[in-house]
Structure formats: C-alpha cells, structure tokens
Amino acid sequence: MAEFVQLLFNGLVAGSIFGIAALGISLVYSVLRLVNFAAGDFLTLGAFTTFFLATSIHLPFIVAVLLSMLLGVVISLILEFLLWRKLRRTGAGLLALFLVATGVAFVLRQTISLIFGGNSQKFDIDQIKTFEFLGAQIAQAQLAVLCCASVAITFIALFIKKSTIGKNMRAYADNPSLASVSGINVDRVIIATWTISGAFGALAGVFQGTVQGQFTNGMGLDLFLSILAAVILGTIGDAYGALIGGFVLGVVMELSTWDALLGGIPSTYKPVVAFAVLVIVLLFKPEGIFGVKARKV
C-alpha cells in the first residue's frame, strides 16, 4: 500500500510535468500544424538558465524561473519570425517542418552544451526533506512541483477557455481559413501560441530539474518521447487531451514499476512503457483517445 501511494504520487508529479509540456506541443500543433521536435530542448533550456541565474548570479529562485520562461518565449518568437513564418508561406510539407524543427533542436541543445558543458547540474534546493503520508515518503520539493504545476495547468486551461485570445486560438485551430476571414488576428493567435509553449516549456523544465535533482543537457531529449506519447495519447492538437494524456502516462509509467503488478518492470524501461501504451492505444483507436473518426468526403 505504501509503495502504491508512493508510486501514485510520483506518477502525479511526473504527469503534471508531462501534461504542461504536452499541452505546449499540442497547442503548437493545433494552431501551426507543426510537431515541435525542439520542445524537449526548451525544457532543458528552462532548467539550465534557471540554474545559471539562481546559482551563479544568485537571483531569487522565483525571479530566475520567470526570466527563464521569458527567454523561452523570446527564443520561440525569434524562431517564429526567422523560420516558421517563412515555411508556412511557402507551404512547406510535413518533412520540411519535421527536419527544420530537428535542426532547431540540434542547434539549441548543442548551444546549451557548449555553454554549460556536459556535466550534470542541480538546483540549490533541499531534496532530502520529506514527510510521511500514508506510509509513503513525500519529498517537499516534489509536492511543491505538483502544487505549482497544478496552478500553472489551471491557469492555462482557464486562459484557453475564457480569454478572447484563447477563444480565438481554438477557433483558428478548428478552421484556420474561416477564422482568418471572420476577423481574427492570426498573428496575435500565433504569437500567443508560441508564448504559452515557450514559457511553459521552460517552466516544465524547471519542474523536471527539481524533481530529478540532477540534470544534464540531455534531460529534455530523454523526456521528449514520453511527452510526445502523451500528446498523441490525448489526440494531437487537443490541449485538454494532452493534459489528460500526460497524467495518464505519468501514473501508468510509475505504476508499471510496482512489484505487486507481476513483479513490476525495471524502472529504466519506463519510456518503453510510455510507448507500449501509446502503440496499444493507437492500434485500437488510431485517432487518439479523444479523437473523432475522420469523415471521408
């Protein structure tokens, strides 16, 4: 029982991080039809800039996090104006978008590696402090991440649902041509999309860095495939689906290591579990959990 609670808690923490990151990817896909292969490296970027600002320059942690999120936004927007806009105008295909995104991921990751080196880093946070809950050891840092992540998720969900720009985003995602002619400011929608994706990608990176304790320049990349699995699980382009997909995967991945479940699998295989779940779901429901059967005309 204690182990179950422990794993469930870990799963929820992991799921909240997956959820935030997955939401950014799904949002970008729904508005821009782009699978952002560089998204994982935005997580790394967030973790490393926060580390730099908080540990080396000694800014207050919260300021460091906010500045990192800002950097995530700035870089996302620079890429939008430099690359994505032009590619959209020339009507670039799936492959062009995939490969440019991959190129961006390479450049981003190697820049981080050049600046910070290949060593692992850690935030100046007490990882040891824990308390007992139903027999499980709950780390305060993890609990803090879960709480902050929940606030962030609620914020984004409300923003998409209630704000004018959020509504416009959904309208544009549903039907770009209709939205454009009905007077929605497309540029603002796109900028908002990149802003959310950049800021919360960086934030997810800080969360992940906190939970992991130590992190390297490959952190985002290692996580990226599991996040992508969450995105597809929740039907790509569906923001709420991505959140749910994230939580489902986070919990399933943690519980898969539970001894009581057929002895559990080694924890190193967790990413494999993520994709096994994904493939099984896709086999039975190729459009994702929340997808609707496409109409052939």
Partner: peptide
C-alpha cells in the same frame, strides 16, 4: 543542424 535548417529553407 544549421545545414539542415538552411537546406530545408
């Protein structure tokens, strides 16, 4: 990475 981007662009 840069070559890949320039090439596709």
């Amino acid at each position: 990475g840069i070559v890949l981007i320039i090439l596709m662009m």
